[in-house]
Design a protein around this nucleic acid. Structure first.
Length: 472
DNA sequence: ATGTTC
């Protein structure tokens, strides 16, 4: 592998072997994955071999090893030139994402009530592997509405306010959902989990705005210094996982019929325009809408908990997905082309003026939400013109040590005590889960965000720090 | 990420 530094924040892997396009890694030298400990650059190279891929196989500064595709990867295929869709390029947690709520109160006003609020959240927010959701969906017919209309359906039946939808990507639901492509098993897994965090790196945090970098953008997003916020990070639970498993299996069987060979069987894929490709895209859209309804229901549960301890309103700042593929039109080699843009552990970051943005956000660009690691900072960013990788940026800190490695070196109890000693209230579910998500297992989110900004992928708007963690 | 191995 020949890797060339093109700028302090951009490295290029020249095409060789089966690569159809170069690899482009947006990273500082310090953040470049170490090939001895992380195979993600090998995965960037594998992705560059996908049929129909255009421009480059991209990696964001938080890139790390994942299923087939790296987490922190962006790859676009030309769907009118037999370009493929691959479930591995979206990930098992379809539409895993983040939403940020801004409270109408400042830190000092909340601190006397924080313990009570955290206890209320502890009781109200379902989480962990086996947890049921806050919403008891009445049955298959109602779940179908969730799959078709996501957060929009949740709000229609009273779980939220109309303004929430103006602050969701795609108005709270993406088009093209096909519930018939979601297996009975996926539906069964999904029925009882709407309104639950899940486990792993998912969390709900009470945060405070610690720093503003861009006052005009912060004002447009409704953020000011010392303000209390809530960040919710979760995905599509068992339903999304089952959708991914089902369609990976279908595509593994279909690939030879399309004459497709890939360097790693975890890159199983099919032309986006084939029956298998369209089936996955329809099921993926349904799972995406499920995740958006999930975050909407957790928003309502959070509002109820706040209402018992404060008089503050919670306004939705924005809701983003960081595991999804989208059909978008971009100019490639001087021609407008319809592309299937896979973003896995990467966030869409629309530039100022993009027609998809609500009018009041258009002057500043799309809000981008970056969850940090437990006990560290989280960030609000904004999209910028230029858009190095189909208008995408990073999604989080990025793991550098496996769960297993983290477990060996960190005690969950000690970590909880350290966080509490720093004034962060912790409501966990398991000591093991806490240890696996220790900040020492992740890259430095401040460095990741600075690198994304330095690479011209986004700009910083605000830095948030946690005062309470509800851990999945 | 995940009824943490159909």
């Amino acid at each position: 592998m020949k890797i060339v530094a093109e700028s302090p924040y951009r490295f290029r892997i020249e095409p060789f072997g089966t690569m159809r396009v170069p690899g482009v890694v947006f990273a500082s030298r310090a953040l470049l994955p170490d090939p001895d400990h992380d195979k993600s650059l090998e995965q960037v190279i594998h992705v560059a071999a996908l049929p129909g891929i255009v421009r480059a196989s991209y990696a964001m500064p938080d890139v790390h090893w994942g299923y087939g595709f790296p987490i922190g990867g962006v790859a676009a295929t030309d769907i009118d030139a037999d370009g493929v869709i691959s479930p591995g390029g979206v990930g098992f947690d379809i539409s895993c994402g983040v939403r940020l709520l801004a409270a109408g109160l400042d830190r000092a006003e909340l601190v006397p009530h924080l313990d009570g609020l955290m206890d209320a959240l502890d009781r109200t927010i379902p989480r962990g592997m086996h947890g049921g959701g806050v919403w008891h969906v009445s049955g298959h017919r109602e779940l179908e509405h969730v799959l078709r209309a996501g957060a929009r359906y949740a709000v229609e039946v009273g779980h939220g306010v109309a303004r929430d939808l103006e602050r969701c990507e795609d108005g709270g639901a993406i088009a093209g959902a096909d519930p018939d492509r979601v297996s009975a098993r996926a539906v069964e897994r999904g029925l009882g989990q709407v309104g639950s965090l899940g486990s792993g790196n998912h969390f709900l945090e009470v945060q405070v705005v610690a720093e503003i970098y861009d006052e005009a953008a912060a004002r447009a997003f409704g953020l000011h210094p010392d303000q209390v916020c809530v960040m919710i990070h979760c995905g599509s639970r068992g339903l999304g996982h089952q959708v991914c498993s089902d369609h990976v299996r279908t595509m593994e069987a279909a690939m030879s019929r399309y004459g497709i060979t890939v360097p790693d069987r975890q890159l199983a894929c099919a032309p986006a325009n084939s029956p298998e490709g369209r089936a996955y895209l329809g099921a993926m859209a349904a799972a995406t809408n499920y995740a958006r309804a999930n975050r909407q229901l957790l928003t309502e549960a959070t509002r109820h908990a706040f209402a018992r301890h404060t008089t503050a309103e919670l306004d939705l700042v924005y809701d983003i997905s960081h595991n999804v593929a989208a059909i978008e039109t971009h100019e490639v080699d001087g021609k407008r082309r319809r592309l299937c843009v896979h973003r896995k552990g990467a966030t869409r970051a629309l530039p100022p003026g993009d027609p998809e943005l609500p009018p009041d956000l258009a002057p500043v660009g799309q809000p981008v939400l970056i969850p940090g690691t437990m006990g560290t900072a989280s960030f609000v960013l904004a999209g910028v013109a230029g858009g190095g990788a189909f208008h995408s940026t990073c999604h989080g800190a990025g793991r550098v040590r496996s769960r297993h490695q983290a477990l060996r070196s960190v005690s969950g109890r000690r970590l909880r005590d350290e966080l509490e000693a720093r004034g962060i209230a912790v409501r966990g579910t398991s000591w093991r889960g806490l240890a696996e998500e220790a900040p020492s297992a992740y890259k430095d989110v401040d460095a990741v965000v600075d690198t994304a900004e330095g690479a011209g992928l986004c700009r910083k708007v605000a830095r948030l720090v946690p005062i309470g963690v509800v851990k999945g």
